[in-house]
Amino acid sequence: MAVYTLSINGRSRAVEAPEDMPLLWVLRDLLGMTGTKFGCGMGVCGSCTLHLDGEPERACQVPVAHVGTRKVTTIEGLSEKGDHPVQKAWIQHDVAQCGYCQPGQIMQAACLLKKHPHPTDAQIDEGMGENLCRCGTYQRIRAAIHTAAKASAPAGPKKAGAK
């Protein structure tokens, strides 16, 4: 057991945890931040996706000892008022069904849009390919990503945003 000081959603949080405890369980069980979801525990479903220094990571695969000084952003901290362009687009397209995978989908999509401000469908397939949904929301996720792209960077090149 050791004490780790983590930067989570802009706040400094100290936790005492075993060094191999995944960040997922630190957030959920020690800090009570349950927005990040457990889906598989082996990094293959994407439900626990969050950002480390702005990059998408699977929280179930990151031992707390490896987080270091990297800034952790979870679904609770993606925007102050739940109004990140991706969140707004998700509401507009009524993407969620059961909603369990959606925090991970949203965190992944937010990173995808940083890398590709106007992603093609092929880039969406690739960028979102490791985030599973059993309810069948992929078509709406795709549409919502295109909507969020237009809202975040309306001046972007038309060609790249074409469906």
Partner: peptide, 21 residues
């Protein structure tokens, strides 16, 4: 109608079985 749980589902506030403490 958009679903009433929509805003909670996109902000991580929605309470699932596994979130019970």
């Amino acid at each position: 109608r958009r679903r009433l749980d929509g805003p909670d589902l996109v902000t991580g506030k929605a309470g699932f079985g596994t979130d019970v403490r």
